[in-house]
Design a protein around this nucleic acid. Sequence first.
DNA 1: CGAGTTACGCTACGGGTCGTAGCGTAAAAG
DNA 2: CTTTTACGCTACGACCCGTAGCGTAACTCG
Lengths: 220, 220
Amino acid sequence: MVARMHHSASPRKGRTGRPRSVETDHAILHATRAALVDLGWGGLTMSEVAARAGVAKTTLYRRWANKNELVVDAVAVLFDELELPDRGCLQADIEGVVLQFGALLARPETKTALMAVVAESTTDEALRERIRSAIVDRQKRLVQLGRSRAQERGELPADTPGEEGARTAARTMDLIFDVIAGAIVHRTLVSGEPVDAAWGRDFTALFLTGLAGLGDGEPG
Amino acid sequence: MVARMHHSASPRKGRTGRPRSVETDHAILHATRAALVDLGWGGLTMSEVAARAGVAKTTLYRRWANKNELVVDAVAVLFDELELPDRGCLQADIEGVVLQFGALLARPETKTALMAVVAESTTDEALRERIRSAIVDRQKRLVQLGRSRAQERGELPADTPGEEGARTAARTMDLIFDVIAGAIVHRTLVSGEPVDAAWGRDFTALFLTGLAGLGDGEPG
DNA sequence: CGAGTTACGCTACGGGTCGTAGCGTAAAAG
DNA sequence: CTTTTACGCTACGACCCGTAGCGTAACTCG
């Protein structure tokens, strides 16, 4: 993890000179999200963000090298909202996190920004790493938590001990994550349909029992 | 479906004047994909595409209003490759289409372009519609085909007749589509991992039998 | 307190892209 | 040959990018 000189790793206590204003940090990130809502990704400019934040454009470039990194940080904090309260059973936990993530993606700033930076990350390795540490890892924690919680309840088989078991467990985690997050993202952004309670039930049913077991449930 | 005057709806036989060159069409779309590979979405410019295609920049703007629409059309033809040969059983059919779609998304031009235009489409309704008709609908046809094929085999229950049954069938189709496509896209673009045979098997198992039935299969 | 150090605002700049207008020419239909 | 449309070329104003230079503000250390 290379500690760039960008943004606030920590105020570096033994540091001389005028410190960076954290208020300015927040103002910039907030202005970025607001501009994202109004203008979308393509219409977003550094000048616009600077103007909205009441800050000189040079101040932006002292903290972020380009638009991509700025937007990642601006959006990343939104993912802190994600939580996984214990709802008693695996099905309820999944439905809960699906609706949460769906609501997060329904917000115009995340909707617009997330796919754009992911697209850019395909040709920018540093950006990909920033996205991973700032966003993806936070989501994955939830998957891990939900899975181990279900294992404690006996709803899922415990991991096979040993190196091989750890590998398959990791693979399963990755698969689960891609399926859940991918479906929600695709539903929201590509299909353009809302992730509501009904869809959350349908998805969870498919996810838990598979395609074969689908449609055997209640009609409502 | 508003018929824009853009690109080639059809040569309009009873039309006077010099016709548009279809070679120029292809040259531009090909140049767009090539430039996308080399420069990525952010680095792509209309001037660059025009130069690569050996065409005046004005010719580009006579056919496409902006970068987004050009890229959608340039990438859309790649989705024509998708097919669904009958592999005998539902599981094999799914694994096949998963690998196909994964291979398509592994190509740098699709990888880079797809998410970018989807991101833009969140603030551009016309672009969204263009994506839907040019890309999404082609994929959805495969889902429909695979499902009805499985129903004929008796692997899936037939649709309930009547209006209500049609609605739930449509909902199920949408759900299936979002889950499959979403997982592949997420795996490829966000997680940055390949959609290979092993992952295809794992995903299909999860998709068919659900999370509960996962891990009971063969260890290899 | 003053010296050193860093952050900030402001202005200005070269370089690049955008999307369009204007014009002359090329290729089709009648 | 006339009409109509497509094409290439040039030029243009508008905008954004990212940086340099400079004066000032804020904080630390001696």
